[in-house]
């Protein structure tokens, strides 16, 4: 069957073990204020204007339909690199689980060929969808952003009930999970949120590790590049001392933490 992706990134070094190919699925159920891939939100391919002023006339399509066969052919091109480095394929987005049937088709092909699979998810999809792919995913990268529900609604526009619930179920079902926390200045990196996150994750000793993802301006650059109708936040970046003190809050509870994905 066909799915909609908006990018294929080879030689991805920060989306799981080894050298990977990361597939960016289009469409996301969340609307994070600081979205890293703002062009990925809508589920259909969309046309954006690239550049400024005169150049702005140039349009570019974000997203394209592709069959699972064709996509798998593309994945296999780097098989030698996966084998040598202990790498594989990462499904990211957007939210790959939104296209769960398409995702399942490709996951099956990957497992038939012994490729390591990683799904990078925001968790905000029905449990059924997790259940359908669970057996074919070697590693989940699971985003936890805000523990306070009101704040979650405020900054991400949905409740975090489902996200928290799915994480608990997923870990219970025996899946290998790394939790990723995007550190957004003044929003997710606050003492309150970090403490609440530590408390929440403490109940899951089975987690492989926590990845703290310092904010970067990649998303803002894209807003400008693609003339997206979004506000630029102008957020500042965390310094090393702040990062280390956040890290310490997790490690002091015995959790394995890494800065950067």
């Amino acid at each position: 069957m066909d799915g909609i992706i908006f990018d294929i990134k080879k030689f991805a070094l920060h989306d799981g073990p080894g050298i990977r190919t990361t597939l960016f699925f289009k469409g996301c159920p969340l609307n994070c204020l600081w979205c890293h891939n703002p062009e990925s939100r809508l589920s259909e391919p969309e046309s954006v204007n690239v550049g400024h002023g005169e150049q702005c006339k140039k349009s570019k399509m974000i997203g394209r339909k592709i069959s699972s066969d064709l996509l798998f052919q593309e994945i296999l091109k780097d098989e030698m690199f996966y084998v040598e480095s202990g790498g594989g394929v990462t499904f990211s987005g957007g939210e790959p689980m939104l296209q769960s049937e398409f995702l399942l088709e490709i996951l099956l092909k990957c497992k038939q060929n012994n490729l390591h699979t990683t799904v990078d998810t925001c968790g905000h999809v029905s449990w059924d969808q997790f259940e359908s792919v669970l057996n074919y995913v070697d590693l989940f990268l699971y985003d936890i952003k805000l523990i306070d529900e009101d704040m979650h609604r405020q900054y991400i526009s949905v409740s975090n009930e489902l996200i928290k619930e799915n994480l608990l179920k997923l870990v219970k079902a025996g899946a290998k999970v790394r939790v990723r926390i995007p550190l957004i200045a003044g929003i997710t990196d606050t003492d309150d949120n970090i403490s609440a996150t530590v408390q929440f994750l403490k109940q899951l000793p089975e987690l492989l590790a926590i990845d703290l993802l310092p904010y970067n301006k990649f998303g803002e650059d894209k807003i400008e590049r693609y003339n997206l109708p979004r506000k630029r936040l102008g957020l500042h970046l965390q310094d090393e001392a702040t990062l280390n003190s956040i890290k310490h809050k997790f490690t002091s509870e015995g959790m394995e933490v890494q800065i950067g994905g």
């Binding site: 070094l13 080894g18 050298i19 030698m80 690199f81 040598e84 480095s85 202990g86 790498g87």
Partner: peptide, 15 residues
């Protein structure tokens, strides 16, 4: 970790 991946990149090309 990245350096290890570069080593794998080189080794794969050489394979």
């Amino acid at each position: 970790t990245s350096v290890s991946k570069i080593i794998s990149l080189i080794r794969t090309y050489f394979r």
